[in-house]
């Protein structure tokens, strides 16, 4: 295989990975934020204290967190088919990626929001802020640097997950590494994939770090 062929494969793989990870990140950010915020609000002493809701939510998140991704991938095939109509291809891979990453990110969101000092929240309540204002302008805004740092970790985890999704026909760099690098002994492809992944992860981390530094005023 010539280098130009390798690069062509690599380009497609990168594009697929970027698409899978990108869309999954977007959906995970929305879902994870929602669940993370609810976990904090419904907790004992929270602004919407509802211990039973909190317990159920916590249980669901824990179940999601305890399944190894490769098993989740297979286990939710019927769900994936119901959502996108197929279980093969990058679009189909986005479903398990998102389902797997949401509980992960939700816990990160929860931890980040708990870092906002209690007296800052109490001060906002004392000022007469609405719950919506407290969530939006105090909790999420104050935790933003931690949320961005957490999202960076999640994106990188998703890159790893996406390689596994590749093995069941999801496409992307993982798929490339397995099919060409492993099964066909195309060492060049393997090396190129690894380099591409390292660069990709490095870039994500760098962007995350810069954003965190810019936003943090602690």
């Amino acid at each position: 295989m010539t280098w130009s062929e390798v690069f062509e494969l690599l380009g497609t793989g990168l594009q697929e990975t970027a698409w899978m990870v990108g869309v999954a990140t977007l959906l995970t950010a929305i879902g994870g934020l929602l669940i993370g915020v609810l976990l904090v609000l419904t907790d004992k002493g929270g602004l919407l204290a509802a211990p039973p809701v909190n317990a159920v939510l916590g249980l669901i998140v824990n179940v999601g967190r305890s399944l190894p991704f490769i098993i989740l991938l297979v286990a939710i095939i019927p769900f994936t088919r119901a959502v996108v109509g197929t279980t093969i291809g990058t679009d189909a891979a986005i479903v398990p990626l998102t389902v797997g990453a949401i509980p992960f990110f939700a816990r990160i969101v929860e931890a980040a929001l708990r870092e906002v000092p209690a007296d800052v929240v109490a001060a906002s309540v004392a000022m007469g802020a609405t719950r919506r204002q407290i969530v939006g302008k105090v909790l999420l805004r104050e935790a933003l640097p931690a949320l961005i740092a957490g999202l960076t970790i999640t994106v990188i985890a998703l890159v790893g997950y996406s390689a596994m999704a590749g093995t069941v026909g999801g496409g992307g760099l993982g798929d490339l590494a397995i099919r060409y690098g492993y099964q066909r002994f195309e060492t060049e492809v393997m090396i190129a994939t690894v380099v591409a992944l390292v660069v990709f992860v490095q870039l994500v981390q760098m962007v995350g770090d810069v954003l965190v530094r810019r936003l943090s005023h602690r």
Binding site: P117, D119, V120, A122, A123, G128, H217
Partner: peptide
């Protein structure tokens, strides 16, 4: 609304760091 008429200050200031 009633709380708007009652100011409060705190030992550790409780300011928004952002």
């Amino acid at each position: 609304v009633a709380r708007h008429g009652i100011g409060m200050i705190h030992q550790h200031f409780a300011l928004l760091s952002s």
